[in-house]
Design a protein around this nucleic acid. Sequence first.
DNA 1: TAGGCCATCTGGTCCT
DNA 2: AGGACCAGATGGCCTA
Length: 215
Amino acid sequence: MNPLTPLDIPGVPHCSPGFSLGPRMHHAPVVSLHRPAKPHRDLNPQEQLELRRKINSRERKRMQDLNVAMDALREVMVPYASNPTSSQTPGRRLSKISTLVLARNYILLLGSSLQEMRRLLGEVSGVGVTSAPVPRLLLAGGCWPVVSNQILLTQEAFSSGGSANGKCPVIAPPSGQVEVVPGHWGNAVGGNVCLCGVCRLNRFGHATTPTRFSK
DNA sequence: TAGGCCATCTGGTCCT
DNA sequence: AGGACCAGATGGCCTA
């Protein structure tokens, strides 16, 4: 295979002069430094090329679907990201990692809120439910409980949160909104979630998802 | 200019 | 066997 030959979109080179590329279709095909692809069965070069195009196309589609899902997640995160006082460029969308971490924190927050709600209900009804377990997955059924522009976190929750390590200020934005500052996201889940670049990764035990691969 | 973020290509592995 | 999934590599764009 010629590594400089675009394999993907028949008739649409990625980065050739004279072609208008999409916003992200701006670079030449990657020249693989891996060993040459081993011949797939007994395919002739043309068939291998077609196969590679097909595989690339599938992979691109898969990643695009993933991005669609990520955008859907960002949409419900809009209230968190649209604060003009944020050091982020106004209107700049959340990065993928930010979106995921923020979503995770929000799920944790909901769990905390649910627990608190149960505790209060228990106090009212006299039934002890404080030890009721919090559902690990609150979103079963696919219903994301955020209404656009409806802020579910209170300023009190933030103010009482505190920093996990004392280094990272908890953001208590006005009007109860959650401000997203890169590397410093306040959180109300027991004050134990600090997402600054220093400590956000070691506040949680990372689930050691075993790789499927024995590399 | 460095670093973050991203899209894409690619080969390996697992699943159906 | 083919598709899905994953991770490494690469290079472009953008911002501080």
